[in-house]
Amino acid sequence: MALLEVKDLRTSFHTEDGIVGAVDGVSFSVEKGQTLGIVGESGSGKSVTCLTIMGLNAKRNTTSSGEAIWKGKNLLTTKPRELREIRGNDISMIFQDPMTSLNPVHTIGKQLIEAVQLHRDVSNRVARARSLELLKAVGIPYAERRIDDYPHQFSGGMRQRVMIAMALINDPDLLIADEPTTALDVTTQAQILTLMKRLQEEFGSAIIIITHDLGVVAETADDVLVMYGARVVEHASVEELFNRPQHPYTWGLIGSLPRLDIDVERLIQIPGQPPSLLRPPRGCRFHPRCSYVMEVCKTTVPELLPTQREPDHLQACHLDEETKDREAAKLLESMMAEAG
């Protein structure tokens, strides 16, 4: 049985200009100890999906529907009080910007201890010991001394380590990492990802990693969910996705992968702008930017269907599978050639 099962999740925000459908019918599941990567551009709905699961969207002017089943409970209908007990205990979360995600007026020790004591009835001393243990685990040097420092005394990478420590402090079953490395420099990114992988093995948590960077997914994820315009466009295991990508948007993402071995200027960018979720395009939401666009794409929404070869590989594109395989092969070949 899946640890978390999300079915037909929909979230919309009511703004002065109209209704923004930020998440539109997303379904997926996360298995115990596994890592799910959610990839997409900004505004594709990947963060909102997770915030909705966590119940962290602003209550005002937001409506959600669908299900997020966690240990037999639908998180979307769970009472706030019960949800609070799950948050930070069973499911915890780390955020994109470590510079602003920690409270500047409290020491990190205080913030870690708070995380423990919110869920465990333990003394300050015990909570502090646990905090120290985690700080050491995430590789903060001189943790005993630094535990009483304030966030602004740490570098970005160190703060993200603190955030990770805080997220793992209660042994969560699921860790949601929302762009955990985006704000960090490349070297630190690698360190953080390695750390997360190591800790996953150590703590056995499942992870949902939200990113716009397929490279991060390639390094960490078991399964990948590609989102575009509030919808899932492709869902596959990481090997399957990189070997047989089935959606022109995924191709674009793979094509734009930054790599150290090629010239930056030659990066292939996906032309055009992400769709407006206030007035999304009819039919396939990617069609205005798609170089394979057909008439059907402009009118009919493609369904998320399994490919013929691999039933666990879901994709939502009107192109026939033969064309898709051919184009994917072409893309991968050209990339190999460049790399080679």
Partner: peptide, 21 residues
């Protein structure tokens, strides 16, 4: 602020978030 979201993600009750954060 992001740190308020962090506090919520930690499972802190609203009252505590308001007062402490």
């Amino acid at each position: 602020e992001d740190f308020v979201r962090t506090a919520r993600a930690k499972g802190a009750p609203e009252r505590r978030i308001l007062v402490s954060h």
